[in-house]
Computed example of a mutant assay.
Amino acid sequence: MTRETGRKLIASNKKARHDYAILKTYEAGIVLAGTEVKSLRAGYCSLRDAFAGEHEGEIMLYGLHIAEYGFGSWTNHAPRRTRKLLLHKVEISRILAQLRDGNGLTMVPLSLYFNDGWAKVELALARGLRSYDKRQALAARDAQREIAKHLGRHLKGATTSRP
């Protein structure tokens, strides 16, 4: 069997980009059991309640739901078990230093994907947004959409603008 190449997205956490201000992103490997990999290849995964945290000097992923593999037997995994993330020691020490500073930062997974056959998770060092920050972002996005719509009409020659 030939080895996979390229990047295949399994799941993304769109809500995280809405709820958090992303400061820095990291790519980490993830330690999985055999039935977890088969379930991920089928696309049965949810990042909704997942977050990363420290456990004995390592970074672990909590709350990631990978459904049990349908054809698994007694070797099946627990769907929400804690999973170890694979990062370089230097990256781990930098991340943990920033998390311990007490600036209200957290680690949230943004996406889970296969990169050349290896399961990877994109982590973000993020700060939670308040509701007024979210409203400002939505208003700015709507304004940009409105500007693009009017510019598109202008470029096409439709000079009449409708309210």
Rank of each mutant, 00 (worst) to 15 (best):
R127G: 11
A137L: 13
G152K: 13
L138Y: 04
L112Y: 15
Y132G: 00
G152V: 00
I147D: 13
K134T: 09
K120P: 12
G152Q: 03
L138R: 15
K149V: 00
V121W: 09
V121D: 12
L112G: 07
D133R: 06
R127T: 05
V121I: 15
Q136R: 09
A148S: 08
F114N: 11
F114E: 14
L123N: 10
L123M: 15
K149Y: 09
A140T: 07
A139M: 01
A124M: 05
R153D: 03
L155P: 00
P109W: 11
H150S: 08
G128S: 10
L155M: 11
A126F: 04
F114S: 12
K134Y: 05
E122Y: 08
L125H: 04
W118R: 15
E122M: 13
R130L: 10
G128E: 10
K149R: 14
L151G: 00
Y132N: 02
D133V: 01
A119P: 07
V121H: 10
R145N: 02
K134L: 08
R153N: 10
L123Y: 07
S111C: 12
H154D: 01
D142F: 04
R135C: 01
L125V: 06
L155Y: 12
A126T: 04
A137V: 04
R135V: 01
Y132Q: 05
K149S: 03
Y132H: 07
V108R: 06
D142V: 07
A124H: 06
E146H: 09
Y132C: 00
A126P: 04
H154A: 08
R135D: 08
N115T: 06
G128L: 03
F114Q: 12
D133S: 14
L125M: 12
S111W: 05
L129A: 02
R153L: 13
E122I: 02
S131I: 09
D133L: 05
L151C: 00
R145S: 03
N115K: 15
N115H: 15
G117K: 06
L155I: 00
N115Y: 14
R127D: 03
E146F: 05
Y113N: 11
V121S: 08
L151I: 02
L112N: 09
I147P: 02
A139N: 03
E122S: 12
L138A: 13
P109T: 06
I147C: 05
G117D: 11
A143N: 07
G128P: 11
L138P: 00
S131Y: 12
A126S: 08
S131E: 10
D133K: 06
A139V: 02
A139I: 03
S131K: 14
A148D: 11
R145F: 03
W118F: 12
E122P: 01
E122T: 09
D116M: 03
S111T: 14
A137K: 14
D133P: 02
V108S: 08
H150N: 12
Q144P: 04
L125F: 11
L123A: 04
K149P: 01
Q136K: 10
A124D: 10
H154Q: 03
K149C: 00
S131L: 12
F114I: 07
A124C: 09
A148F: 03
K149D: 07
A137R: 14
V108M: 08
Y132W: 05
G117C: 13
G128R: 14
A126G: 06
A140M: 04
V121F: 13
